[in-house]
Structures are given as structure tokens and as C-alpha cells.
Write a protein that binds this DNA or RNA. Structure first.
Length: 745
DNA sequence: ACATCTATGTGG
DNA sequence: CACATAGATGTT
């Protein structure tokens, strides 16, 4: 229904109810609420027997329905979702094959939706009369000494929060009550904004002088912004080429025009270091959004943005939906990062949606990476994005020297497989002797990946998942990395009672033990999700490494990204084959990105860096390109392969997944759906019949999937939505759709 | 999601 | 027949 531009007020609101019905319902707007109901408002409506929250999608003055119920009330004093963001949500629901309500869940943070958190109110105690305070204190001293104390404190410190009086001065609230009764003080609610930066004192920073490469890129950014329809730039800059300074100056440029900016950073890279760079340049105009914020902090940050009190947001994936109204720029740093894809519905990719939001709100978009995703680089060749390149490190630092060690040869030489090669040992020794630091990378935590009985070949497997239990030596337990189930490690085989049990497969704990054995003089720190359990442990660990109280840092994913340590001269990649051998067409791409990113941690200061890559496939072309840091070479080869196999970006994918506790039921329904959907999709769509997922069973549920390929993903998505609505599925089988999946597991 | 309606099944 | 129970339908 189109909105008519009559002068008569619009009495009818079309809303989506906070249930996943994906339908619009009409309600009458009572006169009393007339000026409070806008598009994007959150309202309370009677629905069936109960009452529910709903979001206003459209306004009008005509309805197909006869009897309309009244909107009960409006939540908040202004629309909680901007019109543009609502449009974006609709677009996402269509594209990602999900309901509008599911998209609204990501547009509006849960703390805002639930309305459980309010602006924090604290009771502020103020003197009624400063002049007479001393006389008053003297007068009440005998009968109420505590009350007199309070008066003196208020005299010297001015208005004070009740909580501070009770905490710092150990005074009771009842004493304050007494004063209030005597009308000597007044107690009132004062909003107190939580400030996540309270503990930090940030020194201001000035824009840096740009290198010649950076100057050229800034010109391209300016051109992208000045274009009638603002453009998307792919900023391909090697590690250490100064991408962040580009971001900062681009933001400053928008700020000068009164426009807002969003900076997306992978969650794992959202360290205090990163935040500080933005805070030091833009101070209080920056808001930070990350998963560690408390509900209260998140509420305050969101409110600041919605009320226009900050102009810049730095945050992980969900910060893309910051409710700015005059957005000028979106930056997606490390755009190739898989963590931009949300793994629950709606399974959106923040980089792709950043480009869509940029289009809708005419904001420029900068996608930055040293190792762009195949999709993004392909989009450059298709003229969808503009390419900017920075091939030199600032200050003319050299790229680290990379060398490969053939672990098969190493094993032959020693008569058994080795964990740390002699080459890596000697390089580490050299670095340690020079007082330099080293990083060892292995993307797998735990001590051993499996526990096996040498006699009967029994392997400990999780009872909820089709997965081997990983051995963790520290607690002497076997644990499942999927469901977290753990048990005491047995001392003999649970099947045949044989005491000879073998622990096979490398994890970071094993590396730690081996490294400590070889370098008994070195201070070793392991960083993985097992050691980084406390809220601040990540910051503390990195602080210790920075301060030089750690020589060798061993870790998983979490040390691969964006860390900047000038004293690190050596990076050891323990087992490069790990990611290469994944059963996924993106394994090569991911390995290349990982190797180049990890290598980028070396030689970031005065000292040159060295990288040792250990692998059993030293002549694999992906490893070859990574050694030469040759992105273009890698891209050309990989894109050719994708073309031959008609894989993304040449075709687009959707995965339909079926899950349930009964394997046969799940299997049968996936078969039935495969039959069923034939009638819904066009000939251009390729259907792969249902297959059990790589990990068949997770948390007691079985998984089967149908893969679909098409040139036109939007059309495919729409057909899928219709098919799923029409398909009669058993209650105990759940269907979920992943559009543009990143992983096929 | 939840209430309500409808078609079908079961006992004896 | 009464009653139970699974599945479909509607909520403005």
C-alpha cells in the first residue's frame, strides 16, 4: 500500500509483531498517540489474547480490515529504528531468506528491545543551604553525629552520590533519610552515564604526515566521496602499510562535513590498542561497541549514537547497524575476515551489508585488507569497487623474509615426526640471544586431538557429537571442542583395560610443553581460549608480552590478527597444513590469508623479521605464493580454479540444513525437501542432493544438508522462502538456510 | 508464541 | 458415543 500524501493525519499503522510471523498487521493509532507514532517506532499492541511489542513499518489511512484494534502505547520518545535501517532490514530478510522480525533483532540491540535497562539513575544528595550548614551540623551533632558528618562532607565535596557516601565514607542511607526529613538535604535522581573509558587516560594524537602512497589513496577516497553515487573502495594495503591512518583521515574529512562514520573491526582485533588510536584522534566523539560491554554500557553507547551525541562508532559486526541519520562513511577493516559472517539467523555478512547500507544511505565504503577476499577482488575486476593499493610499509620497513621447512624431510632425518624443526629451533635461539621475541602459531588448542588405545584402537569420542575428545593436559581431562562436554582422562583403555594409551595430534598445550623443554631459559606464554578465560586476561597477556616479560608467545587465531609488537623478529608457523587440508573450497584462500597475516606480525619495528613455515606440503602453490607474499599470483591462480569449478564468486551458493535428534527423520525430510523444491527453482539452479554434514552429529542432533548453486542468488533465496513456507515439516526437524555460506561444514 | 478449531483415532 | 490428540489455522 502506498503512502498517500494527503493532509489528513495517518491513522493506521502497519506493524510487524515481535514473533516470527513475517506478516504485517494493521492497527488504529488513537489520537492521543498520533504525534508519537512514526515509522520505526516500537509500539505495544493487543495481539490475540495477549499483548506484544511491535514495530511500525508503514503509516497510512486505509486498511483492508474492518475492525482495527488500537495501539496500546509507544515505547521511547523517538523512533528506535531509522527509516533507512528498516529498509535495510527488509532487504536483508529478502536476501538472507529469513523473516523481518529476525532482521529487526540485529537492527535493535536486545537491551533496547527489552527495555529492561534504563538510563542509569543514581541518587544525588545536595545541601539545601550551604550558608547555614555549619550551624546545622553543630546543632544536630549530639543526637545524630553521622548526619552531621554527612553535612560536612557535602560542604567540602559539593553534591555527592548516595552510593559514594555509603561506599567511600561508610555512612548509611538511613542517616541521609534523616537529613532529608529535616529538609537539610535534598535527594534526587540524576542520570549518570556509564563510561567504558573511565579507567583510561588517552593522549590526543595529531594526523600523521602521509607517505606518497597514502597521499594517492586519500585522493581516491576524496573522489569516492565526491562522486554523485558514492563508491566502494577496496583498499589493498600490505601489513604495516598504514591503513589505519587512512581510516582516521577519511573519518576526519567526513566529520568536518558533519557526517558520521562507522568502523568495523573483527571482534578479535578490537583491542584497547585499536580503540585507543581512534579515541586519541577523536576523543569523546567515538563510541565503541563490542561483546564485552555490560548491558548498561551497551544501552548508553547506543543511546548516545541515537541521540546524535557521537559521530563515530568503532565496533564489531553489529556496529554496522548504528542508528546514524547522516552517515557518510563505512570502513570495514580486514574485510576478508570470516568473523564478519554471523553464524546465527540472520546469517548476514557485515562486509556485504556495509556495501548495501552505503548504497542506500549514499555513504562511501572502504574495505581494507592485506589479503582481500576473492569475492572483493573479483568485484574490483567487475568494476563494482574501486581499487586502492599500498604496497610499501611505512618507514620503508622490509617485508619479513619467509622460508619453508619440509617436515617430511625433517621426520626422515630424525627417524620420527618432529614438532619444532631444527631450523625453527636455531632461529629461535638466535632471536632469544639477541633479546628479541618470537611468536609460534598453531590454530588448534588443547594438548592432543585424540586419545587412542594402541591395543584395541579404541578412540575416545564425545557421546553428543561425532568428534574425538581432545586431551587437555593441564586438567588431565578429555573435552569435546564442540559441546564442551568433558571427563577425567582415563589411565587405561575404557574398552580393553590396556594401560597403554597414546595421545596423538598437536595442540597449543603440546607446543607449549615442547617449547619449554627445548628453551628452558625462555619465558613462554600460551594464548588461546583456554588460558584467556578472564575478562582482562587478553589485555594482561598482551601487556606482558609488550613489556618484554615474555620471550615466546604461543597461540591460536587470536594472536594472528593486527597485533603490533616491534620487538618480534621471528614467527613460527608450526603446521601450515592444518588449514590447507580442510574439506572446503576456501581452504586455499584461508591458508594464504592466514600465512600472510601471521607473517605480518614479524619485523614491525627497526629489526627485520623472519618467518619459518613448517609444512608437509612445501611445494603447494598456496604456500609458494604466501612465501613470496604474492597476492596477485595467488588470486590469479585461485580465481581460475574457481571459474573452472564454477564456484563462488562465479556462482552463488545457498545451503539448506536439516537438524533433529532422530537421524532417520532428518534424513527422510532432507530427501523429501529435495524432491519438493524441484518445483520451486528455475533450471539455472543446481541442486546437490542431501548429504550428511561433515560433522554428522553435534550436541545430540544430526545434520544433513542440501547445497544449491545459482547465478541469481536473490531469486534462489525467494524460491527457497516460498518452498520452506509450503513444505510440511515434522515438528522435530528444524530447517535453516545459509545464503553465501563461508563454510560448508 | 499461543489459543483455538478440525480431522482423525481409540476404546469397547 | 465421549474423549483424546495431532495438525492446521489465525492473531489486525
Amino acid at each position: 500500500m502506498t503512502q498517500s500524501s494527503t493532509s489528513s493525519p495517518l491513522h493506521i499503522a502497519r506493524v510487524v509483531v515481535n514473533l516470527s510471523l513475517d506478516r504485517l498487521f494493521d492497527y488504529h493509532i488513537p489520537d492521543s498517540l498520533q504525534d508519537q507514532v512514526h515509522i520505526g517506532s516500537m509500539v505495544v499492541v493487543p495481539f490475540g489474547q495477549s499483548t506484544r511489542n511491535a514495530y511500525v513499518m508503514e503509516l497510512g489511512n486505509h486498511s483492508e480490515f474492518g475492525e482495527l484494534k488500537d495501539i496500546t502505547s509507544v515505547v521511547g520518545d523517538r523512533a528506535l529504528i531509522t527509516e533507512k535501517l528498516l529498509e535495510l532490514g527488509d532487504w536483508m530478510a529478502d536476501y538472507y531468506c529469513c523473516t523481518r522480525e529476525q532482521c529487526i533483532q540485529v537492527l535493535l540491540p536486545a537491551v533496547i528491545r527489552s527495555q529492561k535497562v534504563k538510563k542509569k539513575k543514581r541518587k544525588l544528595v545536595t545541601l539545601t543551604s550551604v550558608k547555614t550548614v555549619e550551624d546545622d551540623a553543630e546543632r544536630i551533632k549530639v543526637r545524630a553525629p553521622k548526619q552531621a558528618d554527612i553535612l560536612i562532607i557535602l560542604k567540602t565535596h559539593g553534591p555527592t552520590f548516595l552510593s559514594d557516601l555509603t561506599r567511600k565514607w561508610n555512612l548509611s542511607a538511613s542517616a541521609v533519610k534523616g537529613l532529608e526529613a529535616k529538609s537539610l538535604v535534598i535527594v534526587e535522581d540524576e542520570t549518570d552515564e556509564r563510561n567504558p573509558f573511565d579507567q583510561f587516560n588517552v593522549l590526543p594524537s595529531e594526523p600523521l604526515a602521509l607517505t606518497s602512497e597514502q597521499t594517492i589513496v586519500m585522493e581516491q577516497v576524496r573522489a569516492a566521496v565526491n562522486a554523485e553515487q558514492r563508491q566502494t573502495i577496496l583498499l589493498w594495503g600490505v601489513t604495516g602499510s598504514g591503513k589505519t591512518e587512512i581510516y582516521l583521515q577519511a573519518i576526519a574529512m567526513r566529520l568536518a562535513e558533519g557526517e558520521e562514520s562507522i568502523v568495523l573491526v573483527p571482534e578479535i582485533a578490537l583491542t584497547p590498542q585499536t580503540v585507543e588510536r581512534f579515541r586519541s584522534r577523536f576523543g569523546d566523539q567515538v563510541s565503541v561497541m563490542h561483546s564485552q560491554l555490560s548491558d548498561g554500557e551497551r544501552f548508553d553507547e547506543w543511546t548516545k549514537i541515537n541521540e546524535g551525541r557521537v559521530k563515530i562508532v568503532v565496533g564489531a559486526r553489529s556496529a554496522l547497524f548504528a542508528p546514524f541519520r547522516n552517515l557518510g562513511l563505512i570502513i570495514v577493516d580486514e574485510e576478508h575476515e570470516g568473523s564478519y559472517k554471523q553464524d546465527k539467523v540472520p546469517r548476514y555478512h557485515a562486509r556485504d551489508i556495509a556495501v548495501v547500507r552505503g548504497k542506500k544511505e549514499n555513504a562511501a565504503v572502504i574495505l581494507g585488507s592485506a589479503t582481500p577476499s576473492l569475492e572483493s577482488f573479483y568485484n574490483v575486476t567487475q568494476k563494482k569497487y574501486v581499487l586502492s593499493r599500498m604496497m610499501k610499509r611505512v618507514d620503508d620497513q622490509k617485508m619479513p623474509a619467509m622460508e619453508v621447512v619440509d617436515m617430511a624431510g625433517e621426520a626422515a632425518a630424525h627417524g620420527q615426526p618432529q614438532i619444532i624443526s631444527s631450523r625453527l629451533i636455531s632461529e629461535t635461539r638466535k632471536a632469544l640471544d639477541n633479546g628479541e621475541q618470537a611468536i609460534f602459531f598453531l590454530n588448534r588448542r588443547g594438548y592432543a586431538t585424540h586419545m587412542q588405545c594402541l591395543k584395541c584402537n579404541f578412540i575416545a569420542e564425545c557421546k553428543n557429537c561425532s568428534m574425538n575428545m581432545t586431551y587437555h593436559k593441564k586438567d588431565d581431562i578429555l573435552t569435546c571442542h564442540i559441546c564442551g562436554e568433558s571427563q577425567k582422562a582415563p589411565t587405561s583403555c575404557p574398552e580393553c583395560r590396556d594401560p597403554e594409551i597414546k595421545f596423538g595430534g598437536l595442540g597449543t598445550q603440546k607446543i607449549e610443553a615442547v617449547v619449554k623443554g627445548i628453551f628452558s631459559d625462555a619465558r613462554v606464554l600460551r594464548m588461546d581460549s583456554d588460558t584467556m578465560t578472564r575478562k582482562d586476561s587478553y589485555r594482561d597477556a598482551l601487556g606482558a608480552f609488550r613489556a618484554g616479560s615474555v620471550d615466546i608467545l604461543i597461540g591460536t587465531q587470536m594472536i594472528a590478527k593486527g597485533l603490533h609488537f616491534p620487538n618480534v623478529t621471528l614467527v613460527g608457523i608450526i603446521f601450515a597444513d592444518l588449514s590447507l587440508n580442510m574439506p572446503d573450497f576456501r581452504a586455499g584462500e584461508r591458508t594464504f590469508q592466514l600465512l600472510v597475516q601471521v607473517a605480518g606480525r614479524a619485523g614491525r619495528g627497526e629489526l627485520p623479521g623472519k618467518v619459518v613455515v613448517q609444512t608437509y606440503t612445501p611445494f603447494h602453490s598456496v604456500i609458494g605464493h604466501a612465501l613470496k607474499q604474492d597476492y596477485q599470483g595467488f588470486y590469479d591462480e585461485e580465481i581460475e580454479a574457481r571459474k573452472l569449478l564454477n564456484m563462488p564468486p562465479f556462482s552463488r551458493m545457498a545451503i539448506v540444513q536439516f537438524r533433529g535428534e532422530s537421524q532417520s527423520l532428518v534424513h527422510d525430510h532432507s530427501q523429501a525437501f529435495h524432491e519438493f523444491i524441484q518445483h520451486y527453482v528455475s533450471d539455472h539452479c543446481t541442486l546437490i542432493p542431501p548429504l550428511p554434514c561433515t560433522i554428522l552429529k553435534k550436541r545430540g542432533k544430526f545434520f544433513y544438508q542440501i547445497m544449491m548453486y545459482s547465478e541469481n542468488i536473490q531469486q534462489l533465496s525467494r524460491s527457497l522462502k516460498r518452498a520452506i513456507t509450503d513444505f510440511k515439516c515434522h515438528r522435530d526437524v528444524a530447517i535453516s538456510v545459509d545464503i553465501d555460506p563461508l563454510s560448508m561444514l
